[in-house]
Write a protein that binds this DNA or RNA. Structure first.
Lengths: 226, 226
DNA sequence: ATTAAACGTAAATTTAACGTAAATTTAGCG
DNA sequence: CGCTAAATTTACGTTAAATTTACGTTTAAT
């Protein structure tokens, strides 16, 4: 496997210095950002395998960043916090953090926690393109190719297709899809999804009755068939 | 999905009391052991989905227990520790713990961490497929295979078959089945079940008179024979 | 032998879920 | 601001699943 890429979003230069050294020493690839907006950009462009996020950022509130990242993908996030309030911690974990460390912390503990997260979640980097028989799906931009003709997708259509196509043959539940794309789930929201599926199928020229790409599993979810 | 089962191994009765209350309130099933040896036994027999392990056990050293559990399976383990040494924590995480909490801790934080672990690791107590002579039953989706031809089941048919097939040879009472599938039970509801059994048998090409898969035990219930 | 209780199954009915078109609202951009 | 594309909401026809009804068959007890 490639070196896991780890993105540190923190405004303290000292933290960057000593974390980057330890990370590279441990065989990780280090990426660094000093504020939330460039951190989000880096997340989109460089596809890190894990994010270390400081909550006390200058531009955007850390928990907002957390929510934004969670909306896009399920990358493991380790939060650094100065506060030692237990209620705060609970909020963080519920908001989507996978773990946290209070400053000051020991670098060894940070490394250990990173390893645990990478081990448990078995995060695998996603290739730039997914190739299937007649279909190519770009993962960085909402575009697909069918027999070499390009088709533009909307952001949501793209997210949906990726979610399904990354797990070819696997049945993905409606709930999972709703959470992945809309961030939350209220029972009865599945009509959003039905419409989105229709739009996507239309663009892919897929027939719901006799699908080549997206198969409905009634009462449960959808499945990408290849 | 079934309630996640959580095993607490700790020698303090008070801890058991207030953790068990919170766990059940949060929809988990609580299992409790007071020492390491019975904890290990419970782990083997009851297949919990997560273990909360206190390090200060009377009989065996906690980290030895940790290692033993790790040897058998990759169930998430949350360690409780009185010590606050960072070096100790690192050792724990490297030894196979997925997370830890120092006593005293807030119960809310414990619950939050449990949820994160269960969410991330997506621990599946049941294997993805149950294999029998000529029959393969998918557990995540309503599909079975008989001699490599796939057969689609409805949700209820699938639930019923799983309930029976997870306990091969065991007689399951009608009442148990009704409760498991419909959530409640009113005497005289068994005709629902008879119809469902018929549907299922038809799809499995099973003959009620001379069954290969589902045997009727008149007056009591049904039994999966393999 | 007759009867009652329990079962199996076919068919009818009701309910839930899906797919799609069209209308409306929201968001991004010059 | 005004335009365009995207996202959401509404509405409705269609299909599949679940439930209900009805009835014939087996089994075991009187």
């Amino acid at each position: 496997m490639n070196k896991p890429r780890i993105l540190l979003i923190d405004d303290e230069e000292k933290i960057h210095q000593f974390i980057s050294i330890s990370l590279t020493a441990e065989g990780f690839e280090y990426l660094g950002c000093r504020d939330a907006s460039s951190g989000l950009e880096c997340f989109q462009n460089d596809k890190p395998n894990l994010i270390i996020l400081d909550l006390g950022l200058p531009d955007i509130d850390g928990s907002a960043v957390l929510a934004m990242i969670r909306k896009i993908g399920n990358i493991p996030i380790l939060v650094l916090t100065a506060r030692e309030q237990s209620a705060e911690k609970v909020k963080l974990l519920n908001a989507g953090a996978n773990d946290y460390l209070s400053k000051p912390f020991e670098i060894k503990e940070l490394i250990a926690r990173i390893k645990v997260l990478l081990r448990d979640i078995q995060y695998e980097p996603i290739p730039a393109e997914l190739h299937f028989e007649n279909l190519i799906i770009r993962t960085f931009e909402p575009m697909v190719f069918i027999k070499n003709t390009s088709i533009h997708l909307t952001k949501k259509e793209h997210q949906l297709l990726l979610l399904l196509a990354i797990n070819p043959g696997v049945l993905i539940s409606q709930k999972k899809i709703l959470v992945a794309i809309w961030g939350e789930f209220h029972s009865g929201d599945s009509h959003y999804l039905r419409v989105l599926i229709t739009h996507l199928r239309k663009k892919l020229k897929d027939d719901a009755e006799d699908p080549i790409y997206i198969k409905t599993e009634p009462g449960i979810g959808y499945r990408f068939i290849c």
